[in-house]
Measured scan of single mutants.
Amino acid sequence: MIINNLKLIREKKKISQSELAALLEVSRQTINGIEKNKYNPSLQLALKIAYYLNTPLEDIFQWQ
């Protein structure tokens, strides 16, 4: 199972779901689904999230 800290990191950086979704060219619902662990992002999307949040990938997504 993958645990993610996306919501915590996104809120710490004061970025809304809508703003992050626009940067990543995905829907706000996609961001919401990832934050709620409804599904895991593709590797490409995970890397883009880490890039736009300027945060190491392993700080956002962790195996458990």
Rank of each mutant, 00 (worst) to 15 (best):
E19A: 13
N40Y: 13
K14P: 04
N32K: 15
L23P: 03
L23N: 11
N32Y: 10
A21P: 00
L23M: 14
Q62A: 10
Y52G: 05
N4P: 02
L53C: 03
Q29N: 14
Q64H: 11
A50P: 00
E58C: 09
N4T: 02
K48P: 01
R10A: 02
Q44N: 12
I60R: 00
G33Q: 14
K14A: 11
I15S: 03
K12I: 11
I2Q: 08
E35S: 01
E35W: 01
I9Y: 10
K38F: 13
L8M: 14
L8G: 11
R10S: 02
L45C: 05
L20M: 08
N4R: 02
N5K: 06
K38Q: 15
I34H: 01
K36T: 15
E19C: 07
I60L: 12
L53S: 01
R28A: 14
N40M: 15
N54C: 08
I9R: 03
R28M: 15
T55H: 08
K12M: 14
N40W: 11
A22I: 11
G33I: 08
P56D: 08
P41M: 05
L43H: 10
I49S: 01
S27C: 05
E11K: 09
I31H: 00
E11G: 07
Q44T: 13
Y51K: 11
D59H: 11
R10Q: 01
P56S: 08
N54K: 12
S42V: 04
Q62K: 11
T30N: 05
L57S: 03
I2D: 05
I31Y: 04
Y39W: 10
Q44M: 11
Y51V: 07
I2C: 08
I34N: 00
S27T: 10
R28E: 15
T30K: 09
Y52R: 05
R28I: 15
D59F: 09
I60F: 03
E11L: 12
K14G: 15
I15E: 01
E11D: 08
L24Y: 00
Y39S: 09
A46P: 00
K13G: 05
E58I: 06
L53D: 00
I49A: 04
D59K: 11
I3N: 08
E11F: 06
N4G: 04
G33D: 15
I9S: 04
N5D: 05
G33H: 15
Q17Y: 04
K48L: 10
L43P: 09
K14D: 12
I49W: 01
L24V: 15
R10P: 01
W63N: 04
K13N: 12
R28S: 13
M1E: 05
Q17E: 06
K48F: 04
N4H: 03
L8V: 14
A46T: 04
S42T: 13
M1D: 05
Q44K: 12
I49G: 00
N4A: 03
S16W: 03
N5V: 03
I60T: 02
V26E: 04
S18Y: 12
Q44C: 10
I31W: 01
N32L: 13
L24T: 14
E58N: 14
I3T: 14
I15D: 00
A50V: 05
K38R: 09
F61K: 00
L23I: 14
K36H: 15
A46N: 01
S42W: 04
I15Q: 04
A46L: 05
N37I: 03
K38I: 14
E19K: 14
I15K: 06
F61C: 02
A50F: 02
S27E: 10
P41Q: 02
L57E: 02
A50D: 01
G33Y: 13
L43F: 13
K12N: 12
I34S: 00
S42M: 05
K48N: 07
L45D: 04
A21C: 05
I3V: 14
L23C: 08
R28K: 12
S16V: 04
S16Y: 04
L57I: 12
I2T: 11
I9T: 07
L45A: 03
S27Q: 07
L20V: 03
V26T: 10
P56C: 05
L43N: 07
E58L: 09
W63D: 03
I2A: 09
Q17R: 09
L43G: 05
N5R: 11
Y52I: 14
K38V: 14
L45R: 02
L23K: 12
A46C: 07
L24H: 01
E11R: 10
S27R: 08
E58Y: 11
M1W: 06
L8D: 15
N5L: 04
L47H: 11
E35M: 02
L57Q: 03
M1N: 06
E25H: 15
I2E: 07
A21H: 01
L23V: 12
L57G: 02
N40T: 14
V26A: 04
G33V: 10
T30Q: 09
L24S: 07
P56M: 06
K38Y: 13
A46D: 00
I49E: 00
L53K: 00
I34T: 02
N5I: 03
I60Q: 01
D59M: 13
E11Q: 12
T30I: 13
N40F: 13
E11M: 11
L6F: 03
N32W: 09
K48D: 07
E35T: 01
Q44S: 11
K48W: 06
S27G: 09
Q64L: 07
V26G: 02
L47D: 06
V26P: 00
Y52M: 10
I3F: 10
K13D: 04
K7G: 08
K7V: 07
I9L: 10
T55S: 09
K13F: 09
Q64W: 08
Y39C: 09
K12L: 13
L6N: 02
M1R: 05
S16H: 05
Y39N: 08
A21E: 03
K7R: 15
I31G: 00
A46Y: 03
K14N: 15
I34V: 05
I3P: 05
A50Q: 04
S27F: 03
L23F: 13
V26H: 03
N37E: 07
L43A: 07
Q64I: 09
N37Y: 06
K7I: 06
L24Q: 00
F61A: 01
L45N: 03
L53Y: 01
Y52D: 02
F61L: 03
L20I: 05
F61D: 01
Q17F: 04
I3H: 07
K7C: 06
S18K: 14
L45P: 00
N5T: 04
F61W: 05
R28P: 15
L6Q: 03
A21D: 02
L47M: 14
E25P: 06
M1H: 07
I31C: 01
L24A: 11
L23A: 15
D59I: 08
S27N: 08
P41G: 03
K12G: 13
R28T: 15
Q29F: 10
F61R: 00
I34P: 00
N54E: 14
E35G: 01
S42A: 06
N32P: 03
E19I: 08
I2F: 10
S18W: 15
A22Y: 09
N37S: 11
R10Y: 02
I3R: 11
I15L: 11
N32D: 15
N37R: 08
E58K: 12
A46K: 07
I60M: 06
N5M: 06
N32M: 15
K36D: 14
Q44P: 12
N54R: 09
K14S: 12
I15W: 06
E35Y: 01
L20H: 00
L20D: 00
K12Q: 14
R28W: 15
R10G: 01
N37L: 06
L45S: 03
E58V: 09
K36V: 12
P56A: 10
I49R: 00
R28Y: 11
T30E: 09
N40L: 14
K7A: 11
Q44L: 12
I3K: 14
L20K: 00
E35C: 02
I49C: 05
L43K: 10
K48Q: 11
T55D: 03
N32F: 06
I31Q: 01
A21W: 01
N37C: 08
I49K: 00
I15A: 03
I34A: 02
R28N: 13
I3A: 08
Q17G: 05
S42G: 09
L43E: 07
N40S: 14
N40Q: 09
N54L: 06
L23Y: 14
R10T: 02
R28V: 15
I2W: 09
Q64C: 08
A50C: 06
K7S: 10
I31K: 00
I31F: 03
N5P: 02
L53M: 07
L47F: 09
E25M: 10
K13L: 13
E19H: 13
Y39R: 10
I34K: 00
I60K: 00
V26S: 04
L45E: 05
S18F: 12
K14I: 05
Y39T: 12
R28F: 09
Q17P: 06
N54D: 14
I31D: 00
N54P: 00
N32H: 13
E11C: 07
K38E: 15
S42R: 06
I31V: 12
T55Y: 07
A50K: 02
T30F: 12
Q64S: 13
L57T: 04
L47T: 11
I49M: 07
R10M: 08
Y39L: 13
F61H: 01
F61P: 00
